[in-house]
């Protein structure tokens, strides 16, 4: 499938924006600038971007605790995101949500989620809204291999199937639920094999191949928009970092990180593919790299320079407070 050039450039820009964002979050977290804890998405960029390249702002998305990449791919402003991670008043959620609760209703981004398996029922809700209102909006429901063992996912797959909801369930199988390998916690080799139990199409993909993700998502999104119901895509991928920043990753196999950070890296693979086919030039990519680095520098500066919220903000944004 041919992807138009402007979309290829957008894809490269978004993948790099995620990578540089996460790399910088790791640095700033190490410096003690970011409170709490963070779960980094680096290494999984082809999944979020390959899926979101098929969406508009009107489409919905539910996300996970590892949600920064989903947000960037859906077009959430990285300044507001970074300020949110810093707990600042200018954060996208006024500093009240933090890393695990970044949301942007204007972009259809219904929230990262601190509860594993918390998102799929919500996705059924936005799917029901679109169906009830008769729009062609689709909902992307990202979840990890860990969430695939939660009852909420199974309930939601069934609900989406019987109500023919316009949802694309995207399993981001990065091989580990926290420190527990998928080959231990999952009863099947491929999560997408479970789609058969819910009478929907299921496809298992190389999630580090942007083109494979894009094409599968293209088909699933078209199917959903046409009122033909949900699909389950499983993208096998890998996280370059630990479950959280500070995770010693003792459960990973020797050499695994290096292999995924080099020959299996999704951005490197995309870059090699588009350059070798002459679809994008090195100069164009270098240009994007410069813009991305500047945008992240600017986002960090914005976050650092922004004030913390006033303590009275504790009592706003909830209808009954005292």
């Amino acid at each position: 499938m041919d992807i138009p050039k402007d979309k290829l450039l957008w894809i490269y820009e978004r993948m790099q924006l995620i990578r540089v964002f996460e790399t910088r979050v790791s640095t700033e977290f190490g410096k003690g600038k970011i409170p709490g804890f963070v779960h980094l998405y680096a290494g999984e960029e082809a999944v979020a971007v390959g899926i979101c390249a098929n969406l508009t702002d009107a489409d919905y998305m539910t996300s996970t605790h590892r949600g920064h990449g989903h947000c960037v791919a859906k077009g959430v402003d990285v300044r507001g995101m970074m300020a949110e991670l810093f707990g600042k008043a200018t954060g996208i959620c006024k500093g009240k949500g933090g890393s695990m609760h970044i949301a942007d209703m204007d972009k259809g981004m219904l929230g990262a989620n601190g509860i594993v398996g918390g998102g799929p029922p919500l996705a059924c809700g936005s799917g029901l809204t679109a169906k009830t209102n008769g729009t062609d909006q689709v909902t992307i429901c990202f979840f990890g291999d860990g969430a695939s063992e939660q009852g909420t996912l199974h309930e939601s797959l069934n609900l989406a199937a019987i109500w023919k909801l316009p949802i694309i369930f995207v399993a981001e199988n990065n091989g580990y639920a926290e420190s527990t390998p998928a080959h231990y916690h999952c009863s099947v080799e491929n999560i997408a094999d479970r789609a058969a139990a819910y009478n929907m199409p299921g496809v298992t993909l190389d999630g580090n191949d942007l083109f494979a993700v894009y094409e599968a998502a293209h088909e699933a999104v078209a199917r959903a928009r046409a009122g033909q119901g949900p699909s389950l895509l499983e993208c096998k991928t890998y996280r370059h970092y630990g479950h959280f920043e500070g995770d010693a990753q003792t459960y990973k196999i020797a050499g695994e990180n290096e292999r995924y950070q080099n020959e299996l890296d999704p951005i490197k693979r995309f870059t090699d593919a588009v350059l070798s086919r002459g679809l994008v030039s090195e100069a164009e990519m270098a240009d994007i790299d410069g813009q991305v680095n500047a945008a992240i520098d600017e986002a960090v500066k914005f976050a650092e320079d922004s004030p913390f919220p006033e303590v009275q903000e504790t009592f706003t944004d909830v209808y009954v407070s005292y």
Binding site: L110, P121, G125, S126, N133
Partner: peptide, 26 residues
């Protein structure tokens, strides 16, 4: 039946769906 919707016995599923539907305009 589009507005009076029978659900399966899936309380997490349908209560969560109601939350998501409320957050998106119903």
């Amino acid at each position: 039946r589009e507005r009076v919707i029978d659900t399966p016995i899936s309380e997490s599923g349908f209560i969560g769906a109601a939350v998501g539907a409320a957050a998106t305009g119903l």
